[in-house]
Design a protein around this nucleic acid. Structure first.
Lengths: 259, 259
DNA sequence: TTAATAGTGTCTCTGAGACACTATCGT
DNA sequence: ACGATAGTGTCTCAGAGACACTATTAA
């Protein structure tokens, strides 16, 4: 191993290096409204954004001040961008262990007026009640939840419009192709509650139609009936409860599914 | 817009910044062997690796010298890592427009002994004949194709073992869930040729079984029969040719497919 | 004629799709 | 009894899975 020799002679500054490395997070939640007792909930997908302060900590004017942006921050040299995102998310929600996933890198020259800054984008899925205690911090004047439609109308900082539009696509995809929907649901749930979650991102007939979905849920290998357990929270007629089973390997090729 | 004022006061160096930003590429190809005339080809998935030189351009000992590594290089400040990967890939193959996709970021502290270096990982799918003219360059002593099994036995530079293992998974997934298989096939192909490609990454019964696959291929919405056109390159009996149609939106949720 | 690949002929069984129907409760 | 959600009954049709069978050619 002459790696030590090589290293001794290696000049770290022979290439131009980035001016910064950040981790941004698109925090999704679903606001669930129970219109009435004995009714299934109405659900709406929301994204959390922060409003950038007009001035920074030292009172100087801030970059992209007043615009809405994804929460995030600079990555420290002793952590990965994922760890950095975890830290940010924990600061924002007060809990760790939430569903967090990396989905893209944004490095277009000029995307940040401060210089060559690479952003590593993540998205998180957070149950509604974790965000009730949300608060503005040093960097932000305001924190708010928006529907996806609303977000696209806002004036967004940097290239966050692009990042968000990608995040929405990836998140919708994952909701349909994995079992993350469970992050939005209680441990035990009715078919109509799962249906409400999926309705926020799809309108496939099998999911929209109640009879079809009620039948289908019983055949899914990753969902099991909680035998004998029922609830009346969504209807007067006691409704069967279901539960996600332990992770199953799900992967179907387009060459084997039905169209 | 007081962004100009803010910018004037912004100190780019207030955070520690990365020491480098690289783009690495896992170049996949399928080596197709025609054992005999009138036989379907046997296909094997291969990955292209380079062997790192013992010394650099100035004759000094190189980092991770002698180990096998993914091709790649430092990203310039005026390009995205994707563009950088495109450039590298073109240098390696002599052509542009090949299938190239970003799949992950590797930024674990200590992954590169030279410092805080972030690697943006891509994979490419290259038809076999594009790699015939491959050659070693300044940075590499040698360039070679390995099967995935072989690769896992090699001594690999940096954290490339991890990157490669991720690349293989993502690439196998994409082969089954999109129509990229076409990158490995001629414009018009027989069912057994497509089957050979898919066999490199799966053993789902519907794909492995000839009668089943021969039936299934006719019902796939993204593949059409080339009516009346046959070939005898895979068998003595003239075989029907097929062709991929223009991109179709394929997305099936796990809640609607059959298991 | 044989050997090899490329299919097709059936049968059974599961599930999708449609739509009417029943079930169960609170009010 | 009614209204509302949660299902089930039944029919038809498409396709999966299994396995034997036929089709077409070169040698």
């Amino acid at each position: 191993m002459s790696n030590e020799q090589a290293l001794a002679q290696y000049d770290v500054k022979q290439y131009r290096t980035p001016d910064g490395y950040t981790a941004d997070i698109a925090v999704f939640t679903i606001i669930s409204t129970r219109l009435d007792t004995y009714k299934p909930p109405t659900m709406e997908l929301k994204l959390m954004l922060i409003k950038r302060s007009m001035t920074d900590l030292e009172g100087r004017p801030n970059i992209e001040a007043g615009k809405w942006a994804l929460p995030g921050g600079f990555v420290n040299p002793d952590e990965t961008s994922f760890q950095s995102a975890q830290r940010e998310l924990q600061e924002e929600t007060g809990v760790s262990g939430l569903h967090l996933k990396h989905f893209g890198v944004y490095d277009k020259p000029g995307r940040d007026p401060r210089g060559w800054i690479i952003s590593n984008a993540h998205y998180a899925i957070v149950p509604e009640h974790r965000l009730s205690s949300r608060q503005a911090n040093d960097d932000a004047d305001d924190v708010e939840l928006f529907t996806i439609d609303q977000v696209l109308q806002l004036e967004l900082a940097f290239d966050h419009a692009e990042i968000i539009s990608d995040a929405v696509k990836v998140m919708a995809q994952e909701l349909l192709e994995t079992t993350v929907a469970k992050e939005f649901l209680p441990k035990e749930f009715t078919y109509s509650e799962l249906q409400s979650v999926l309705r926020t991102v799809t309108n496939e007939p099998q999911i929209i139609s109640d009879p079809a979905f009620a039948r289908k849920i019983k055949t899914l290998p990753f969902i099991q009936e909680v035998t004998g357990k029922k609830t009346t929270r969504t209807s007067k007629k006691p409704t069967q409860l279901y539960r996600f089973t332990e992770p199953v390997q799900l992967s179907k090729s387009i060459y084997t599914v039905r169209y």
